[in-house]
Structure formats: C-alpha cells, structure tokens
Design a binder for these strands. Structure first.
Lengths: 188, 188
DNA sequence: ACAAGATTGTACTGATCGGTAAATGTATGT
DNA sequence: ACATACATTTACCGATCAGTACAATCTTGT
C-alpha cells in the first residue's frame, strides 16, 4: 500500500521547471521532461493538472521557508544571529540570484492570479516575522515594519538585478549591505 | 505615401499587453485585441512577429528612460533635484507598483533570453547614470556604485512587493526611504 | 477618375497546448 | 496463485498557438 512514493519526489523537479519557464511557459512536455514522468503519471499524481502541481510546489516552498526562515525569526531570542542565519539561507536558496523567487514571479503577470492569496500570505508573513524579530532586538516600533519591508523588497530586487546583469556578485553585495543595515539597527 | 502611421501608435498598447501577460502569455489574439489591429495588420507592421513587436516596445521604453531618467542623471549639475525628479518619474511610471517593469520581468524566465543584452544594458546604464550623478553630488566613490545598485534593485523589489501585497502604499514607502537615503548621502 | 501601394480581414497551415481515456504493466497483501 | 490497487504508456480530443497567403479594401498622388 505504498502511496505517494513519487508525488513528493516529483515536486522539486516541478519547482525548478516552473522557476525556469514560469507557469504558462512550463508546458506539460517541459514538466514531463523535468520530472522524467509521462503525462499520464503526472495526471495520476496531480489530477488537477498544472494548477495542482504549482500548488504542491508552493506548499513545498512554504514549508521550507516556515522551517528555515519564518519560525526562527518569530521565535528568536537572539535576533542578530536569527537575522544572520536568514541571510545565509536566503543567499544559498536563491543561489546568489541565479535562482528565481517563484512567489515573486507569480506577482508579475496575469498567469499567477490564481495563487495571489498564497503569495500575499507568504510575503506578509516574511515581513511580519522579520519585523517581530527586529522588535525583539529593541528596534523602535516605528522602524521595524519599514526595515522589514525594505529588506524583503530588497531581496526580490537583488534577484532581478543579479539576473539582469548576469552577475551574482551584485546580489551578494546588495544582500550584505542589507544584512549590516539590520544588524546596525539592532545594536544601535 | 503616409507610412508607419500606426506602427508607432500600436507600440504602447503592445507594451501594456506584454506587461500584463508576459512575452509568452501575450498571444497574438491578446495583442490583436489590445491594439485593435487584426493579425494581418500586426504582421504588416511587424513582419518579424512577436519578437519584433517586443523589440519595438523595448526601444520605445528605452527612449523614454533615456530622455526622462538617464540623460538628466548623466548631465545633472544639481544632483539633488535630478534624483528627486527621477523618483517622481519612476513612481508615476510604475504607477506605484501596479505597473510592472517589463525589462525586469524578462530577466525572470527563459522566455526573455533573446532580449538579455538589451535588458543588461538598460540596467547597467541606469546604475552608471545614477552612480555618476551621486559622484557629482560629492558622494565618496566607494559608495556611489553601491548606492546606485541598491536603489535600482530596490525599485524592482518594490514593484514585486507592492503587487504581492496588492498595496501601492508599500511601494511609495520603500521609494520614499530610498529617495531620502540618496539625498542624505549627497548632503552629508 | 484611375493606378499604385498601403492596409486590412479571412482563411488556412502544421505544431503544440492542456487534458482525457483506456489499455497495459507492476507491485502487494492474502 | 490470484485479486486488487496503483502506475505508466499510448493514443487521442478540441482548442489555441505563431505565422502565412491572398484577396479585398482603403489612401493617396496624379
């Protein structure tokens, strides 16, 4: 009765395909090649088609971010190391900007409207988690939200810019400065 | 012998369609509806198909940015007002983040690889123009490029975030802070 | 008025799209 | 061994894709 043995293992490949081609651009032929599964197998695991595949991918991403980013920020009693850890994970996750933020991409054209609430909650939680962490770090409440917004926004922008310039040094530079801006805010 | 009367006038509509649907998502049916031109007319004006349409759109955008943003920054003898003017134009142009940056979008999936060099030059020029303007403003040369990178990157991120949260106040807030960061750097 | 050229609408191509159906294959519990 | 449930392959569906061909229409200079 081994169920779902492969559905979960197909998700990372689907994620990479969606990242590379976008939701519309990732045709079933592409997804089939990316996963090594035939069209029939994909529909066996994801009867809802591309939409269900994307939902599974988004759930997987959300799970990762909750574990590695959101919860540590929300539960931090040492804000500085929590924030440093966040930047380390983020830099590695987005491969210095070579890897796209799937959630960010979905915001940019009409193909992603069906996932708008998922995307909104993802960014809202990231901002509020970081904001809370800064508050624990004794940053004035007038600035926590603004700093958090700026950081999350800045990460998205760094991905765009790094890809545009085809230079991951840009990504690392921008993130390093954002990192130290937050640390400065805490220790000030 | 009136030639090209309508080609130029179709470009803004094409631009809006590409913004909304992306390059792949903007089918000829969509482009036809957006411009009010039949498929035959579109191919009459743009024999190269979608790719030529996108190139025309990008050339149009580049022209606008050169005139309104890049040249004023490059020729500024009053850096503070040049920068303020840039932020005004940018906020209006991107409609507080409701309007997407077409050049930024093209970086995020494989659909835009054919336009990679155009996109790269656009961002490179923006950064170097802003960087030069800061230098005129007596900002230390160690920081001009970093500040410029951060600003251009931050604008892209603000668009993503504003759309994700469906809240243009976020966009305005992030840009306002970036604006004052640059002004502070100049007058310091 | 008339001819030349620019513009448009319509119909078509072959390819690919997302999705479905059914037949076949494979594993497992009894 | 056998039945059952899951997995995969293959073939197929109608719709839509980008692009082409061409006839019909409209502009414009003379």
């Amino acid at each position: 009765m081994r169920v779902l043995t492969n559905r979960a293992s197909a998700v990372p490949a689907l994620a990479e395909a969606f990242r590379e081609h976008g939701f519309e651009g990732a045709s079933l032929a592409v997804l089939s090649k990316a996963t090594g599964l035939g069209k029939g197998s994909l529909y066996n695991f994801f009867p809802g088609g591309k939409e269900e595949m994307m939902e599974a991918v988004l759930a997987d991403i959300d799970h990762w971010f909750c574990e590695k980013i959101f919860l540590p920020l929300e539960r931090a009693n040492d804000p500085a190391t929590a924030i440093s850890s966040m930047f380390e994970y983020v830099t590695a996750y987005f491969r210095s900007g070579r890897r796209v933020c799937l959630l960010g991409c979905l915001t940019l054209n009409t193909a992603g409207v069906e996932f708008a609430v998922i995307v909104k909650e993802y960014f809202a939680r990231w901002i509020s988690a970081l904001s809370h962490c800064l508050e624990v770090g004794k940053v004035s409440r007038d600035f926590t939200r603004q700093l958090a917004e700026e950081t999350v926004s800045g990460i998205q922008g760094a991905i765009v810019l790094a890809r545009a310039l085809d230079d991951d040094a840009t990504f690392n530079r921008v993130l390093r400065r954002q990192h130290s801006a937050l640390i400065d805010a805490i220790t000030a």
